[in-house]
């Protein structure tokens, strides 16, 4: 067993190196600090939102190693060496990601508080479909799934981990469908 540096001294801070949006960041956090709090409070990346803090709304969605996860239910100290992408890291060369542009075009948000999470989720949804992952909306999970099968009911189900209280769902679906088609 290897100690996560200094962990035996319960509650004391530990150093963790993570790569956030392509940049190595040296964090010094308590073991109890969630990745969400570390991003917001330690790194000033406030695009990722705290809305429920219990894994029940999706507003804190970020990618770890390319996969969408909930940063409120993740301990920062367990992410040493990982590649993390937040909403702030989605643009390339000052240009919006296709999903970001589609959200603007289709008015996929109102207040915007859930939007970072929606977009991070949507980017991953398209990748998951390309990887052939089925969903609860897939009629026969025994059959191969392709991105061409990413219908609106599929998008609705796959985006259901992201609540939107302004309730922009149909516009979000339109944005994801549009971005998936373009990708």
């Amino acid at each position: 067993m290897s100690e996560t540096r200094g962990a035996a001294s319960g509650g004391k801070v530990v150093p963790v190196d993570v790569t956030v949006n392509g940049e190595v960041r040296k964090l010094v956090v308590e073991p109890r600090t969630t990745l969400l709090d570390a991003l917001r409070e330690e790194l000033g990346l406030t695009g990722t939102k705290k809305a429920c803090d219990r894994g029940e709304c999706g507003a804190c969605t970020v990618h770890i190693e390319g996969r969408r996860i909930l940063s409120c239910m993740t301990l920062a100290a367990m992410q040493g060496g990982k590649q993390i992408t937040t909403i702030e890291g989605l643009e390339h060369d000052g240009r919006l990601h296709a999903v970001q542009a589609a959200f603007i075009e289709h008015d996929g948000f109102q207040c915007g508080f859930c939007t970072s999470g929606q977009i991070m989720s949507a980017v991953a949804v398209i990748e998951e479909a390309k990887a052939g992952w089925p969903s609860a909306a897939t009629v026969d999970v025994g059959k191969a799934f392709t991105v061409a099968d990413l219908s609106k009911p599929e998008i609705r189900e796959r985006m259901s981990g992201n609540l939107c209280r302004c309730s922009c769902y149909p516009n979000i679906v339109a944005a994801v469908a549009d971005a998936a088609e373009r990708s």
Binding site: T46, K50, T86, I87, L96, F103, G112
Partner: peptide, 21 residues
């Protein structure tokens, strides 16, 4: 017309009360 605050909201740059340091 698309929302004028759209690019702030899709990039995480829109600052809500809890975001202000």
């Amino acid at each position: 017309i698309s929302r004028t605050d759209g690019s702030l909201k899709v990039t995480g740059r829109a600052r809500y009360t809890g975001d202000i340091r």
